[in-house]
Design a protein around this nucleic acid. Sequence first.
DNA 1: TTATGTATACATGTATACAATCACGGAGGA
DNA 2: TCCTCCGTGATTGTATACATGTATACATAA
Lengths: 212, 212
Amino acid sequence: MPPPSIAQILQDEILSGALPPGTPLSQADLAMRFGVSRIPIRDALAKLSATGLITASPNRTATVLKMTRDEVIEAYNLRLLLEGDLLARAIPQMTDSHLSAIGYALERSSLEARQSNWAEGDRMFHDAIYAAAGQPRQQAMVNDLRRICCIQIAGYNQLTRNTDRWLTDHQRLTNACRAGNLRRATRILRRHLNGARNHLLREMDRKTTRPA
Amino acid sequence: MPPPSIAQILQDEILSGALPPGTPLSQADLAMRFGVSRIPIRDALAKLSATGLITASPNRTATVLKMTRDEVIEAYNLRLLLEGDLLARAIPQMTDSHLSAIGYALERSSLEARQSNWAEGDRMFHDAIYAAAGQPRQQAMVNDLRRICCIQIAGYNQLTRNTDRWLTDHQRLTNACRAGNLRRATRILRRHLNGARNHLLREMDRKTTRPA
DNA sequence: TTATGTATACATGTATACAATCACGGAGGA
DNA sequence: TCCTCCGTGATTGTATACATGTATACATAA
């Protein structure tokens, strides 16, 4: 297995909350830290910028993405639209092979739920669900959106993440897929996303209204 | 006005068909051509890769995006989903200011319809339509998708683009917006996109089944 | 006080040189 | 004939050095 790329390492640190939103990413500092020149750092930052994890402007040091309230709302609107469509395409196409893969992903994600890389488990679970839709680009777009949502969440208290409800939602979603019940699955997904969005918005308000 | 960036120049050439799908983009060649070193070329290629206009792999020379049949279908599925949603959000929010901007964009795009940069006029028109939705990220995603669809179109005969129908569809879409008729606007959009997709798929089949 | 100009420090953008990797073709052997 | 195994040329990846642009602080003038 090749060593993880610089971009991958930085992404993990951003998603885990080690580099909270707004953190400046100086090319020289990163070059020093990774023991390489600034060129590969620039490449890594370009990759992160492509997926939207950082904001980069010419002649300005890049920073970890910090979304406004409106941007969070739009991101969740998009997730609901894209994930709802994927669900509608996937469920009628699901085979036993798909379902067993979903079950496996559910277990895996449950084990990692309370660890620092819970986001990766979450991604794997949803990828398994949406695989049957056969729309890989759409899945990639959804994963990008989910990532930028995770950044904002990771910035706040890990304990406020409502892990229990998150787990039961995944379990119920899996059951609905096994039953082939699109309506129920869609309802669960919608409530899942709306809940996460509202939770995040409340956290954001709490932090901004009482800055210190 | 600043000189256009290297990435912008390359993008225009790709969209105009000067660099058809599959064309290799050698860093050394481009550096020679633009009279700069390979570093800014790498940056430009990274930007193009971010929007999906080129496919780049490590240690491999980048090439202009060449979509398969399935990828074209998925791209148009996504456009229909995202643009339909934008339309549904935009039309109820449209003010006189929005409508006049749409009218202006319609005229502008009509003038450029038969020129090489028709794609830019098309983008401006749809941006004007969707502006009232207030979902800038979603608009950006749609623009990226439209661009990668344009690449494939530009690769084939310009005369087969059905410019007349394209223009009348824009006119009818504008009328539906002025009337505030979402149902009709959605129907026009769906037919517009399905027509473009089928047209493109036919062209692709024609070229692949009779390669020479 | 407010605004403007300027100097300095720092971060990014770019050019050049070198190292690592890959594609291709030809030699050798089963 | 076909497959495998190198070598060679070409292409990309990286390090170093320099050029350019931006921000901050301070001095100066209205």
